[in-house]
């Protein structure tokens, strides 16, 4: 691989989770978000020669994803389309935590390792295997509402655990 490609991959992998999360916040479906991310990755490589290494890579990548998402909205003829100010607000929110990716990932891994097996299994079904909540509810013989609530509690507990770990580690 040439130097450009190495650098491109390094930059992209560094922001991969955040860029996928950004795509999800724009299109609200993991299937669409994955497609948007993949298209964004291709355009980023095509235009990598134009990238100014003195500037941050993440905002540049988000800008390209945003433009592709707007095209996505037009193609899907969505009745409700995010206006520029809402998109700006999302950009600002992502930019605020741009440098914490690695710390947050490590914290999340540690938090996950502390979960009881049934909770971890539930998360694995939902996020590792993308199982629909209805099927999880069926497998566990519970209602969809109960599974949704449990997932919500687990996400909340993980968020809290991440914050505590980052604080303990002295992160800003």
């Amino acid at each position: 691989m040439d130097k450009d490609h190495d650098e491109y991959l390094r930059q992209l992998l560094r922001i991969r989770d955040d860029l996928q999360a950004y795509c999800l916040s724009l299109v609200r479906s993991w299937a669409d978000a994955d497609e948007l991310f993949q298209r964004t990755a291709v355009v980023l490589w095509e235009r990598f020669g134009d990238f100014d290494p003195e500037r941050a890579f993440a905002p540049w990548a988000r800008g390209i994803a945003r433009n592709l998402a707007l095209k996505h909205f037009r193609e899907r003829r969505r009745l409700v389309q995010m206006d520029q100010s809402a998109l700006d607000a999302i950009d600002c929110a992502f930019e605020a935590d741009d440098d914490q990716g690695a710390d947050e990932l490590a914290a999340l891994e540690a938090c996950l390792s502390q979960l009881p097996a049934p909770s971890r299994r539930l998360l694995a079904w939902r996020y590792g295997e993308s199982r629909p909540i209805g099927r999880i509810a069926q497998a566990l013989n519970r209602s969809v509402a109960a599974v949704t609530k449990q997932l919500s509690r687990l996400r909340g507990a993980l968020q809290e655990c991440i914050v505590q770990r980052l604080r303990a580690d002295g992160a800003p």
Binding site: R16, D17, D18, Q20, A21, Y22, L24, S25, W30, I90, A93, F94, A96, D97, E104, L105, L108, E109, L112, L123, A124, Y127, G128, E129, S130, R155, L158, Q159, I162
Partner: peptide, 14 residues
């Protein structure tokens, strides 16, 4: 942004 990041990282790890 926090929720989307959490979901993206859960997907990756799990």
């Amino acid at each position: 942004a926090r929720q989307a990041r959490l979901e993206a990282r859960l997907r990756r790890i799990l």
